[in-house]
């Protein structure tokens, strides 16, 4: 168990005992990560993401006593964020493209590692990540931005381990395809749906 996990378990225990300062410490640690995750999922809507994160942290306060230590504290909070996010999206009946994951085609990839190293390429990568279906974007972001283990990702997004692996597999293929198409000038950043997966 890492130090930060043990620390956060202790903080959560203190929160369960009514320690508001401990809640503030957890807020400082978690809010930026929760905000990043929720906001990127809400298409950059910072204010809506703040509302969701507020609800999550309020639930941390209310439910700290029910935390059983079966998962890491941050994973627990992220999974509450994911649930709130799903509720929020359902409430606003926004489109959720989880279930129509396109099959990646075999594709000439070129040197995609080199393609994402410069600053222009960073813009390409952002673009391609935005184009991913929500479920794939969640999984790849939790894996590489948050450095989470597969079982933790499965808990956050509330799906079987196998689904996490599949989504990450598809996301990798889709990102390569999108980056390589951008590099070859097959599509551009200006197109609203540039390089998005084509329905087959």
């Amino acid at each position: 168990m890492t130090d930060s996990v043990a620390e956060e378990q202790a903080l959560l225990q203190a929160v369960a005992d009514g320690d508001q300062r401990a809640l503030q410490t957890l807020y400082r640690r978690w809010q930026p990560r929760l905000q990043y995750y929720v906001q990127s999922r809400l298409g950059g809507d910072a204010a809506a993401a703040q509302d969701v994160v507020h609800e999550v942290m309020l639930d941390v306060w209310r439910q700290a006593g029910r935390f059983e230590g079966r998962s890491k504290p941050l994973t627990w909070a992220m999974s509450m964020a994911h649930n709130k996010l799903v509720d929020y999206l359902r409430k606003w009946s926004r489109e959720d493209s989880h279930d129509n994951v396109p099959e990646p085609e075999d594709h000439e990839e070129g040197d995609t590692a080199a393609a994402i190293q410069g600053s222009q390429e960073a813009a390409y990568l952002h673009h391609c990540i935005r184009q991913l279906p929500d479920g794939q974007r969640d999984a790849i972001q939790l894996a590489f931005f948050d450095d989470m283990a597969y079982p933790d990702i499965a808990e956050v997004i509330d799906c079987p381990l196998g689904t996490v692996k599949t989504r990450i597999f598809h996301a990798r293929a889709q990102l390569k395809r999108c980056l390589s198409a951008l590099m070859k000038g097959l599509c551009s950043l200006d197109e609203p749906d540039g390089c998005s997966p084509r329905p087959s």
């Binding site: 809640l23 905000q35 906001q39 507020h54 190293q117 990568l125 990540i129 590489f144």
Partner: peptide, 22 residues
């Protein structure tokens, strides 16, 4: 490279107003 590039994106600063609201 993908991971490195994704992590170049900075985390937002702590939302002090959000903390006051909480």
């Amino acid at each position: 490279t993908l991971r490195e590039q994704m992590q170049n994106d900075p985390l937002p600063a702590v939302n002090e107003m959000g903390m006051a609201r909480l």
